[in-house]
Simulated scan of single mutants.
Amino acid sequence: MKLFFDLISTRAATQLVTVNLQQCIVAGWAGRDLAAIEHHIEELAELGVPRPSAVPLYYRIAANQVSQDDALQAVGPHSSGEAEVFVFMHDGQLMVSLASDHTDRKLESISVALSKQICVKPVAREAWPFAEVAAHWDSLILRSWIEEDGRRVLYQEGTLASLRPPTELIEGCFGAAGMPPDAGMTCGTMAAIGGIRPSTNLEMELFDPILGRRIHHAYRIEVLPEIA
């Protein structure tokens, strides 16, 4: 699966880079506060969502489920997205972008892995070198909005200080060898304001308050009928 990014750097002119993605990993349960993770696991368990077998947990997603389109499809009205940092390698260097872990919330109560694997993962079209944000990583802000009753509603907002750094997640998934050049990984998310709920659209951004720039992406889901 080929992904195309406008690589935006403070050190060079914007350039178009291509990534031949063969592996996609969603890092789940990636928060730094283990007590908060356990509380969230217990909350989801009350809704019938099975406990994870490990924390963090690395879900493998089919590479052909990754898309940079802004019009996508999902079966049934039960899915919604979550904004996450997306990291990948280019020319031996780690790059940072933005993605949505779009998930089937109805299927989630049966299998978290399948609920993630069945849905397309939208990815933004811009990226930054990780080296340019590593020193102030915790200050980066992740936000998302959904549309409810015709209004744009803030759905998620928080700094990356609440999540494990991507270098830690990469080592946990791939070991000391690091991320392969054909892989991409989402790096966890924060709680939804007002609770997780289905939505046919998501607007999201990764904002850097130090360098004053942002990566933005939005997409809408066409709901396909569930045929029994």
Rank of each mutant, 00 (worst) to 15 (best):
M1N: 08
M1K: 03
L3Q: 02
L3N: 00
F4P: 01
S9Q: 14
S9K: 10
R11I: 00
R11K: 15
A12R: 15
A12G: 14
A13G: 15
Q15S: 11
Q22T: 12
Q23C: 05
Q23W: 07
I25Y: 03
A27C: 15
W29K: 09
L34T: 13
L34Y: 12
L34Q: 10
L34S: 03
A36M: 03
I37T: 15
H40W: 07
L47C: 11
G48L: 11
Y58K: 11
I61P: 14
A62W: 03
V66R: 00
D70F: 03
A71F: 01
V75L: 12
V75D: 12
P77D: 09
P77H: 12
S79A: 02
S79W: 02
S79R: 04
A83V: 13
E84T: 09
F86P: 04
V87C: 11
F88T: 04
H90Y: 13
Q93E: 15
Q93L: 13
S97V: 01
H102D: 11
T103Y: 01
R105I: 10
L107A: 06
S109I: 10
A113D: 12
L114M: 11
I118V: 15
C119G: 02
V120C: 03
R125C: 10
R125T: 05
W128R: 02
A131D: 15
A131V: 13
E132R: 13
E132K: 14
A134P: 05
A135E: 10
S139M: 00
W145P: 15
I146W: 04
I146H: 01
E148C: 07
G150C: 04
R152C: 08
L160K: 09
L160C: 07
A161S: 14
P166S: 05
P166F: 05
I170K: 06
D182Q: 13
G184I: 01
T186A: 09
I193P: 15
G194K: 07
G195W: 12
R197L: 08
S199F: 05
N201E: 04
L202E: 00
F207S: 07
F207Y: 06
R214D: 02
H216Y: 12
Y219H: 11
R220Y: 02
I221D: 03
I221R: 04
E222S: 11
E222L: 01
L224D: 13
L224I: 02
E226R: 15
